[in-house]
Design a protein around this nucleic acid. Structure first.
Lengths: 95, 95
DNA sequence: AATATTTGGTTTATAATATAAACTACTTTA
DNA sequence: TAAAGTAGTTTATATTATAAACCAAATATT
């Protein structure tokens, strides 16, 4: 058994946490992700941008009660990438 | 359920692969690790040093058939760290 | 009504990490 | 004895992660 490549986009604690949340909730606000992950705004902003560039999530910017609101949704590619990442990890876990 | 911290020493593809191998074989030569992980010598050298500094492995340098030989062994702390890392990962995997 | 504070972020600068390239030291083979 | 191979280490560079600083607008305070 060889070691599978670990998708570098997902092999990041914060991006993985975000994806993990989006897998279960399907759609989440920036503030929700920030609270759940305990990330700083700056870091979260950068990381969701990377996930978007990779095509793993969709980012929707809108206004809610006069405030800007950033919504994140996982894409089908994102779901597949997450599943593959989990599978790849198992090759390291001596399961 | 919150996300557990991922030990940064282990959250590296190559170091994780090395630890995964050492969990199963208990002791391995540098060249064996290099072949199994497909790493370059330089990268492997750096990463096993970090694992040693963290106390996760022991490095024994000796000579074998006139050639230098570097042997790596996992330590009890290394085993615990690996197990904790695997447990922490599960909090991201929505198992 | 001006000013301070809060919300909800982004951009930028810096620190940490991973990796490859270059190098060292020695051995074997031609 | 020169070339090539073994077994690595060191160093330079590219990539990543993170925090600090900033921005724009809303709301609260005096």
């Amino acid at each position: 058994m060889e070691f599978k490549e670990l998708d570098p986009i997902l092999h990041s604690q914060l991006r993985l946490a975000v994806m993990s949340l989006l897998i279960s909730v399907k759609e989440a606000e920036f503030t929700f992700l920030k609270e759940k992950t305990n990330a700083t705004s700056g870091n979260l902003s950068v990381q969701i941008s990377k996930l978007k560039e990779a095509g793993y999530i969709e980012i929707i910017k809108q206004f809610n009660n006069n405030y800007p609101q950033t919504i994140c949704k996982i894409t089908p590619e994102g779901i597949i990438a997450f599943e593959n990442y989990v599978k790849a990890l198992q090759s390291y876990m001596t399961l």
